[in-house]
């Protein structure tokens, strides 16, 4: 028996919004420690790594490890049926063919159940080495979203250049060039609005706007985003999910031909 309950179904809705543009289907690995998803987009350019810890759920039970292949589009449709104040419970048997989503209104007067067929999937796991990154930048997620959207108008890719002065984002295309510089914030009174740069070595990396614009869909999950970068290795873009876990996106850099 697997059962996981979240009082705030809104968290799960936001998680689905954060992955549905990148993934069509994914395997949800459920164990005693929680729920994990690791999946690449179809083009093998980016990877989503989602971790929801069991202790972050309001109720969690997983008698045996389960790998459940799910259609992200279908799951997203189901979660759109949850009211914003509803609680959500995920439930499956030990050898499941289906997973059930149960939504309960705060006054317990409405109970909705949606059963979704599971799908058989080939497992394609990537071993991500433990890396110490040259630059770790933390910044408001809204600001990062704005920068990605704004610069996407000027080119297909955005160059991230990080130095001890701060981080510079730039894009260029047929119409010209755009650059946005962010300096480290001086006062750390408001953590949510702070920009912090932890640099060992300067980095300069170029990434596809198309993927960055998918990652920023996780913005509503967390006020801050963390960008971990080293030259010539994939970017890690991380959003915390309250006290329950995190979503990390890995994105391969572009290289000059």
């Amino acid at each position: 028996m697997f059962e996981a309950r979240l009082v705030q179904s809104a968290i799960l809705k936001k998680v689905l919004d954060a992955i549905k543009d990148l993934l069509t289907e994914a395997t949800f690995e459920c164990s005693d420690s929680g729920i994990q998803v690791q999946a690449m987009d179809n083009a093998h350019v980016s990877l989503v790594s989602l971790n929801l810890r069991s202790d972050g759920f309001d109720k969690y039970r997983c008698d045996r490890n389960l790998s459940m292949g799910m259609s992200i589009a279908c799951m997203s449709k189901i979660l759109r049926c949850a009211g914003s104040e509803d609680t959500v419970t995920l439930r499956a048997l030990d050898n499941p063919e289906n997973i059930v989503f149960i939504f309960e209104s705060p006054n317990k007067e409405k109970l909705a159940e949606y059963e979704m067929k599971l799908i058989n999937m080939d497992q394609e796991h990537l071993g991500i080495p433990e890396t110490s990154y040259s630059c770790i930048v933390k910044m408001p997620s809204q600001e990062f979203s704005r920068i990605c959207r704004d610069l996407s108008q000027f080119g297909e890719s955005i160059t991230f250049a990080c130095s001890k002065e701060g981080i510079k984002f730039s894009a260029s295309g047929d119409y010209g060039q755009a650059t946005i510089k962010l300096a480290q914030t001086a006062d750390a009174d408001n953590e949510e609005e702070a920009v912090s740069v932890n640099m060992q070595e300067p980095v300069k990396l170029t990434f596809s706007c198309r993927y960055l614009n998918c990652f920023i869909k996780a913005g509503p999950l967390c006020a801050q985003v963390q960008l971990s970068m080293s030259n010539d290795v994939p970017l890690v873009c991380e959003y915390k999910i309250g006290d329950i876990g995190h979503i990390r996106y890995y994105l391969a850099p572009k290289i000059d031909d």
């Binding site: 093998h44 350019v45 071993g127 890719s157 391969a252």
Partner: peptide, 14 residues
């Protein structure tokens, strides 16, 4: 436009 790398070149398939 720079070439897009494949993520699998950076990580090992397991």
């Amino acid at each position: 436009t720079p070439m897009q790398n494949d993520l699998q070149e950076f990580f090992a398939l397991i």
